[in-house]
């Protein structure tokens, strides 16, 4: 499983570059590197459905980001300036919170099952009943579309609400002119 660690280190480096670089287009490309690494890791942990969806969503995300940046500016002019007082305060508070959060999460990680040994207490039922009750060979699709179909209805509601929000924000007619 060494390749998982290599991809995670690559993702951390790409994420730091995405947050710190001056050119916003390069930052978005670094974000795309993180997203496609996530897709490859989904394949490595035996989640092909997630990998497919992640690749499609990643391409769409990058396209939207690039469209916005091309319409506006691709220079992050806040990087070169020296730190203001509030920013130093924000960084210090963030560092304190990050250390506390990290310690708490590492302690919490001791309580969940170790990597590679999922408990499968709930999933056993779904795996046994998936083919006879729901009739689908893909158990992830069974869970999404049959056992937990109401969650998927909520997901579709959120997705269409966001589409309505984007359309309302980007409309040309009916906006007050300056």
């Amino acid at each position: 499983m060494i390749e998982l660690y290599l991809f995670l280190i690559f993702m951390l480096v790409a994420a730091i570059i995405a947050t710190e670089i001056k050119d916003l287009l390069a930052a978005v490309i670094s974000l795309g590197a993180v997203g496609f690494s996530v897709a490859i890791m989904f394949i490595l942990v035996q989640a092909p459905d997630l990998a497919i969806v992640q690749i499609v969503v990643e391409v769409l995300t990058i396209v939207i980001f690039v469209a916005v940046i091309l319409k506006t500016t691709h220079i992050d002019e806040t990087i070169a300036e020296k730190f203001s007082g509030t920013q130093v305060l924000a960084t210090v508070l963030y560092a304190v919170f990050a250390i506390l959060f990290f310690i708490a999460m590492v302690r919490a990680m001791n309580d969940i099952p170790p990597f590679g040994q999922a408990t499968m207490r709930v999933a056993g039922q779904y795996i046994r009943l998936g083919l006879p009750r729901a009739g689908g060979a893909n158990l992830v699709a069974d869970v999404i579309l049959d056992f937990r179909a109401l969650d998927t209805l909520g997901e579709a509601t959120v997705l269409f609400t966001s589409v309505i929000g984007v359309v309302a924000l980007m409309r040309k007619i009916g906006r007050r002119q300056k």
Binding site: M1, L8, L12, M105, M109, P114
Partner: peptide, 13 residues
């Protein structure tokens, strides 16, 4: 467990 800690590091970034 180390691999989960890497995920938390990504979250913190």
């Amino acid at each position: 467990m180390t691999i989960f800690v890497f995920c938390i590091a990504l979250f913190l970034i």
